[in-house]
Write a protein that binds this DNA or RNA. Structure first.
Lengths: 227, 227
DNA sequence: TTCGTATTTCTTGTATACAATAACAAAAAT
DNA sequence: ATTTTTGTTATTGTATACAAGAAATACGAA
């Protein structure tokens, strides 16, 4: 995610310590080193990142505003653990947003952007054969991110990024399953095709279906894994 | 907004001072007492709200995460003043989200929820005649909020709320214009009708058109007013 | 043993002190 | 007069100290 997600945040990425701390904790959550429900002890984090509690607190508050962290007053912060109902809602929202991004991309993407999508798609194809699950996961993100970006709507891309971070733990699980990779790639092909031919309706529907299938599988997996 | 927007935030509304401060500043921005571009001096706010800088800073960081405030490192916080391009993008996103909410509401709203929408619509009708612009603005929010809520997707309602807060200064301007009220009400009628008859496609399209018209007018007004 | 209660400890919330840097102003040079 | 440079001021960023409350533990009673 880090590569494509150079989102123009409202606080410059570099410069202040708090921003670095925030980025660090966010990465730890999104990349699965902190799991949903994990306690985020301020002093603990402060010593681990060798700062005081102040930047930690500010980072945690910002992450809470984005939904990645849940703060119970006077009782501490934990990695958010949304109920199944909320996860379903989040997937529903993101499928609609990504579908809209696909539609816009079909209408507005520059040829360069379309080419980037195509390349990302081919990378996915290639890596779907390989055994490097992590690499495939990243390539997958690049493909989706190329489409968000090609929508040429900055706020839309930002929103999708935010929601997806909250879903990262669940998306991760499913993308790593080998059986899903096959189907996923064929769905990607349909999307890439529709975009290349600039068919907004087709692209939108293909993307919505793709994310909804992903959602169903992720939720089923989450249930069996008692996640 | 405050009435319908009892959103289940990740930090309890009451209890901590920081949360109160945040709510206060957010209100000041959304309700137009702080304008886009206004400087938000920490010490200033601290004395005005009779606390120390610490809760102020935490509140500002959270508001920045939601996009309402922009923080330039070592240079202070201001009320966000998105470029015209970004405002267009935001309207595009919110029109799609609200359209989706209308679709879901047509599919899933309980009869009680549909009744609430109907009542909110009638309140709008009544107040559109009156000269109390503020009251009409609020009734308008209640109508829209009733639909978000009737989508029965908590995350969708939350997202729409967040984006709308960022657009509040622009939406405010246009809703207050008398000529717009007429058209707006007829559009509301179409939406309310589609929902009452549970026609998802019609409701979705009516809502999207409604918000897009609002967007166009708001942007045109913003241009003439050099907002 | 188990439940309830009181006490203790530990973590968070708030205030303040200090350090660093950006904005501002004044002065000098072109 | 304008621009550059330098010094001053003011505001933010970070660390720490203290207060208040929640969680954990130990103790006592049933």
């Amino acid at each position: 995610m880090s590569t494509i997600d150079a989102k123009k945040d409202n606080t410059r990425p570099t410069g202040t310590l708090g921003a670095l701390v925030e980025a660090q904790i966010e990465q730890d959550i999104v990349e699965g080193r902190f799991l949903p429900g994990d306690r985020l002890d301020e002093e603990n984090l402060a010593t681990r990142l060798s700062t005081s509690r102040t930047p930690i607190r500010e980072a945690l508050r910002k992450l809470a505003a984005n939904g990645l962290v849940t703060i119970r007053p006077r009782s501490g912060a934990t990695v958010s653990r949304p109920s199944l109902a909320l996860v379903i809602d989040l997937f529903e929202v993101v499928s609609e947003l990504e579908a809209f991004a696909a539609r816009l991309a079909a209408q507005r993407a520059t040829d360069t952007q379309l080419a980037a999508i195509q390349i990302a798609h081919e990378d996915c194809e290639r890596l779907s054969q390989s055994s490097d699950a992590g690499a495939y996961f990243n390539a997958n993100l690049v493909f989706h991110g190329a489409i968000w970006s090609a929508s040429n709507n900055v706020m839309l891309a930002e929103q999708i990024g935010t929601v997806n971070k909250r879903l990262a733990p669940y998306r991760r699980q499913i993308t790593f399953h080998p059986t899903r990779k096959q189907d996923s790639q064929s769905e990607h092909s349909q999307i890439a095709n529709a975009l290349a031919n600039r068919k907004p309706d087709v692209a939108e529907k293909a993307m919505r279906d793709h994310v909804m299938i992903l959602s169903d599988d992720a939720l089923q997996l989450a249930r069996t894994l008692r996640l």
